[in-house]
């Protein structure tokens, strides 16, 4: 920022006042309230037990399953995204709004309906197995398994991984690629030594945007897990809806938040300054 601030600049800060009020009212205050719930019992007394619920065997099992789904889905999203973005770059689809359009358009079909469509595709007598039977391939039994939840999660969050990686890779100047080739680098080396490191900020945003929601989703696991497989999101949701224990639900939420913050601290530590805007 500039040293000598003009009169205008200091007055410009005032423009942010409505937003600052908003942040105080709708970001900070709700957090304070949920933390308050998390550390009190029904009688209003201070307690750690709500937070500790996360370590009870049944909840720990949901946490572990959530981690499994989140990690495998995030990795799958990464593995699907890079070839996609590289292919788009290779075919020169980079600068065109058209390619973004292709990635964003599916969001205009309601998200729950899209997941229900996957249920129709993946169910035991569903579309996928019907197609497989045409080729005389034995039907797959993936309905109501972790695999089918993972497919739904990957499907739903793939654009959130692809878009930031796309932005980061399209920002890489073709000159750098040429310079690397000039110095003797082949395609694989260029990817590993130039493109991958330079797309890291985008990759990190992608991980943040996929990992957290995939761990906490409860609709996808509801529909594709057949109601038997519980993610931590399902557990929290039930505390609020069926069990009606808001303190326990808040405790689990805060525990989840702490966990997310810790894992984010690890991934975003590498973030270089001045690149806050990589996400979109």
């Amino acid at each position: 920022m500039n040293e000598a601030k003009s009169n205008f600049t200091s007055r410009r800060i005032l423009l942010a006042s409505p937003y600052i009020v908003w942040v105080a009212g709708f970001t900070i205050l709700p957090l304070i309230i949920i933390i308050h719930y998390a550390f009190t019992d029904a009688g209003g007394a201070f307690t750690f037990s709500n937070l500790g619920l996360i370590f009870s065997p049944i909840h720990l099992k949901a946490v572990m399953f959530s981690l499994e789904i989140a990690i495998s889905s995030t990795v799958a999203c990464i593995l699907l995204s890079y070839p996609m973005v590289m292919a788009m770059r290779h075919l020169g689809l980079g600068k065109r709004t058209f390619s973004l359009f292709i990635l964003i358009l599916p969001m205009w079909m309601n998200f729950i309906l899209r997941i229900l469509a996957w249920q129709m595709i993946l169910s035991n007598n569903g579309i996928l197995n019907m197609i497989l039977s045409w080729f005389s391939i034995a039907p797959l039994k993936i309905a109501n398994t972790g695999t089918s939840i993972m497919i739904g999660v990957v499907y739903d969050y793939l654009p959130y991984m692809m878009l930031p990686i796309y932005t980061a890779i399209m920002d890489i100047n073709e000159d750098l690629i040429e310079a690397a080739r000039d110095l003797g680098a082949g395609s694989l080396t260029i990817f590993l030594k130039i493109i991958l490191p330079l797309s890291l900020p985008g990759l990190l945003s992608g991980i943040v945007m996929v990992f957290v929601p995939s761990m906490t989703s409860f609709v996808i696991s509801d529909i594709l897990g057949g109601g038997k497989l519980q993610l931590i999101g399902n557990v929290i949701e039930q505390e609020f809806t069926t069990a009606n224990n808001w303190h326990a639900g808040s405790g689990l939420s805060v525990a989840l938040m702490i966990f997310v913050l810790i894992s984010m601290a690890f991934t975003t530590k590498e973030h270089k300054e001045g690149r806050e805007s990589v996400i979109w």
């Binding site: 999101g233 939420s253 997310v260």
Partner: peptide, 23 residues
Amino acid sequence: MMALTNIPMLNADIVTGIALMLW
């Protein structure tokens, strides 16, 4: 301010939703 702006994006939707609901 940018860190505060990022909170709703980083937080799980379910946590944001519950926190607002409690409020």
